[in-house]
Amino acid sequence: MDKFESFSGVAAPMPLVNIDTDMIIPKQFLKTIKRSGLGVNLFAEMRYLDDGSENPDFVLNNPAYRNAEIIVAGDNFGCGSSREHAPWAIKDFGIKCVISTSFADIFFNNCFKNGILPIVLPQEQVDVLMKDAEKGSNARLDIDLENQTVTTSEGESFHFEVDPFRKHCLLEGLDDIGLTLEKASAIDSFESQASQARPWV
């Protein structure tokens, strides 16, 4: 996984609440056996018209936001299924950070596994960022994971919380499996003890 570096990027405003995983990546695109190439299908049903052409009213089709690297979203972003195709599609499009008042649990976890930073901020701060994002491509947000801050184009800065372990993994681009396998002896001893205590498992 690539290391997550601080960056300055265009933020697309998506104020709709409860943006679910079926909206992020409709199920017809889940039939792949690969992780890559899903960006073109991100938000497919909102992004394209029935004839396959782009829906000019959808935010990511607006020239100002075509290269957005951040989404500022309404409450409960990513609710619904466990499909990791949702963060794969977001990542493949080029989005590296999503900001909302709240995220669905599984989606939130999946983001970290794919080098995407989900940021939770209070409503008033998300409102400020949403307004800033609405200004278009000239207004860029600064995302600084090391110092845990989001800064608006006006220079207003907000601090966000992030789990220290997840922050470390993002900053270093670490692979969870490799880290866990370093604890193989702990897993071995748990297994032998559990097979005594609960042999029916």
């Binding site: 992780r35 299924s81 466990s82 499909r83 990791e84 963060p87 599984i106 976890n109 999946n110 596994k113 794919n114 969870d176 499996i177 866990t180």
Partner: peptide, 10 residues
Amino acid sequence: HGIGTSEVEH
């Protein structure tokens, strides 16, 4: 509970 594909691999 449900998990993502990276966690399935884990």
